[in-house]
Every structure is written in C-alpha cells, then in structure tokens.
C-alpha cells in the first residue's frame, strides 16, 4: 500500500518526466522494431526458397536468439558507444530472429499449388511475392511480428544501461535514489506496455485471420 501511494505520489509530482520516458520508450521500440523488420522480412523472402540459405538463416537466428538481451547491449557498447543509436541497433537485432524465422517458415509452408498456379499463369517474381506468397504466409509472419514487438518493448527497458533512455531510466534512477515510487511507476509501465503490445497485435491477427477467411 505504501509503495503504491509512493508511486501515485511520484506520478502526480512528475507527469512530464513520466510522459517523456514513455515517449522515449516507444520511440526506441518503434525504430528498433521497424529496423529489424526492414532487414528480416526481405531477407526471409529472399532465402525462403533456397533450402541451404534458409537453413543457415534459421540457424543464425536461433543462435542470435539464445544471446541474452543484456549481453547484446553490452557487446555493442565498445563498438558504438552509448545513447540512442546503439540501443536501437540492439533492439533491431532482437527483433530479427522471430520475424526471420516466421517469414521463412510461413513462406515455405505456403500452399504449393497456389504458388505453382501463380507462376504458371504468368506472375513475375515480385508480384508473386507480394500478391500470393506473403498473403499466404501472413498469419505466421504476423505472429513473428507480435513476438518481436513484445520482446523489443520489454527489452527497451534495458536501454537505460547504455544511456538509451526510456522507462528503464525510472527503474534505475528509483533504485539509485531509493525512490520506490519512481521505480514502481517505471516497472509497471513497462509491463503494461508489453501487455498492450501483445493484446493489440492479437486483435490485429484475429482481424487478419477473418479477412483470410480461415483458409
């Protein structure tokens, strides 16, 4: 109770600091996620139908996934220093594996006959990818995006360790200053943001599934 009161008190006294942290957190997450998708999606499309490369990509993604987020951040520190850029890059690296793996699996599992028909009817490679392959793979691709988004939103809390800002700052500051209220606000906000991301993508996914007609 006391802790909650402290949190409410801190929030009432520092609304702008809180909103600023939320804004930074969202910015870090969005740019990191966007960057990750921008690399993983085309990469997935490119390797999906080349068995050797696809396996290599999935293996690489698996390896990347086993490295703890904090270790990725720490590894980037000597390379890129501190601040927004290395944080965003670390988050992009984190977003990469789920998007890549799900894109490759989705494309490889797409209805062979439909793809064959698309080719046989005279669709070029780009049109096939955009109009047939990706839509057919979209349920899995979308699930990949959801996983990546939730991971990135959670991991963005760690950016504070290399000076990237975000809600993690509230937690570290609260710890350093023994200010439980501030720490709690940060922690709860991070958790809620992750939950909201999961729920939002879940809704989108269901909408998409309905549009695909359950096929």
């Amino acid at each position: 109770m006391e802790a909650l009161a402290g949190a409410a008190g801190w929030l009432a006294a520092n609304p702008l600091t809180f909103l600023g942290a939320v804004g930074d957190h969202l910015m870090l997450s969005l740019v990191g996620l966007g960057l990750g998708i921008l690399v993983a999606l085309p990469l997935g499309v490119a390797v999906a139908h080349r068995p050797r490369l696809a396996e290599a990509a999935i293996a690489g993604a698996g390896a990347l996934r086993t490295i703890p987020s904090l270790a990725v951040l720490a590894a980037l520190l000597p390379l890129l220093g501190v601040g927004f850029t290395p944080s965003v890059l670390a988050l992009a690296l984190l977003a990469l594996p789920p998007v890549l793996v799900n894109t490759v699996t989705g494309l490889r599992g797409a209805d062979r006959a439909a793809l064959d028909a698309a080719r046989g009817l005279g669709m070029g490679a780009v049109r096939r990818a955009l109009q047939v392959e990706l839509p057919l793979a979209s349920p899995l691709v979308f699930a990949g995006l959801r996983i990546a988004a939730v991971q990135v939103v959670s991991a963005a809390a760690l950016a504070t360790f290399i000076g990237g800002g975000g809600l993690g700052d509230l937690v570290t500051q609260g710890l350093a200053l023994l200010d439980t209220g501030r720490m709690l606000v940060g922690a709860v906000a991070i958790a809620l943001l992750a939950l909201a991301t999961e729920a939002g993508f879940g809704l989108l996914e269901r909408h998409l599934a309905r549009r695909m007609g359950g096929a």
Partner: peptide, 12 residues
Amino acid sequence: GYVIQEVGLFPH
C-alpha cells in the same frame, strides 16, 4: 491457360 490437378486457387 494452365489448369493443375490440385487446382491451386488463391485462398485469400
């Protein structure tokens, strides 16, 4: 024109 056994309609 091309017709295949599995039909291969675009489900979406």
